[in-house]
């Protein structure tokens, strides 16, 4: 069918268009190739040939970045904070989504609007009072402070997505569980969490990206005990001339996200679409 509708000329046109599109695709992967290629060079080799492909690969830069530049410490810090923040986001947003979408209670609409409207208040707009709040609560330089901050700032979209997902589920599910005499906490655990899995996995991946990649909030909250992105930014400042070492740090910092993307590419791409189609 399509062979008749798409003419020969159009097909040739599409192939022609494919060329600039391939070039754009090349620029999208080049920086990662660039980082990996130069991370494997010795500083001497880099200075002699900045453009070429590595000839004598060395892992020295990775070792130095990991140990002497403290990236191992920052890496661990980022893993702990990201994992706990994502867990908190999943629990808090699925509880709230359950209540807002399924349960009946006064002020429900208002509470939903308040949570959604806080999207209008990004961290820059409240930078000073947010910082003072963190100090006032004794959370400065604590991981708990950073986890709470991430949960607060990435929450509205998560609550929105869970509310919209749960409101699409048949209400009978909950009614049936309740007639069986299940408590609402049990309904959440045994019905809402499993049923919400597709949306929760999407949220888990997206929030992992946000938390792992953040720099502004973590610069403010964890001033002594750096996260990985703050560490990379500092590494860039200290070693402007030692590009191999810097790129080794970059590769280490990007690796978890690149692996996550390679594994969950389909899920990530369609997850973004789920949020978008709503618009």
């Amino acid at each position: 069918m399509s062979e008749f509708t798409v003419g020969k000329r159009q097909r040739r046109l599409l192939w022609g268009i494919s060329v600039p599109m391939a070039l754009i695709a090349l620029t999208c992967v080049y920086p990662v190739f660039f980082a990996l290629n130069n991370a494997l060079k010795s500083n001497r080799e880099y200075i002699l040939d900045r453009f070429g492909i590595v000839s004598e690969p060395t892992f020295q830069n990775f070792v130095q970045a990991w140990t002497r530049s403290n990236l191992s410490e920052y890496f661990f810090n980022s893993v702990v904070v990201t994992v706990l923040s994502v867990l908190a986001l999943i629990i808090v947003s699925s509880l709230a989504g359950f209540a807002l979408a399924v349960l009946r209670f006064p002020l429900r609409k208002l509470i939903f609007v308040v949570i959604l409207a806080s999207l209008m208040i990004p961290v820059q707009v409240v930078l000073v009072p947010f910082y003072k709040t963190i100090i006032g609560l004794g959370l400065l330089n604590t991981r708990a402070g950073l986890i709470l901050s991430y949960t607060a700032f990435f929450l509205p979209f998560s609550v929105y997505l869970m509310t919209s997902f749960y409101s699409g589920l048949p209400r009978e599910l909950v009614e049936a569980a309740r007639i069986d005499g299940a408590k609402l906490t049990q309904v959440w655990w045994h019905v809402m969490l499993p049923m919400g899995m597709p949306a929760l996995i999407t949220l888990g991946i997206l929030n992992t990206l946000y938390c792992w990649n953040d720099i502004l909030i973590s610069l403010l909250v964890l001033q002594d005990n750096r996260t990985l992105m703050v560490g990379i930014a500092a590494l860039r400042g200290e070693y402007t001339t030692n590009v191999p070492l810097l790129t080794a740090g970059i590769v280490l910092a990007a690796a978890p996200i690149v692996i996550l993307y390679l594994v969950f590419q389909r899920k990530i791409v369609s997850g973004i679409a789920v949020g978008a189609v709503k618009g």
Partner: peptide, 15 residues
């Protein structure tokens, strides 16, 4: 159930 979400948003953003 909505309290944690509401509290976080109020304490860290609205106030």
């Amino acid at each position: 159930f909505v309290m944690p979400a509401l509290l976080l948003v109020v304490v860290f953003r609205i106030v």
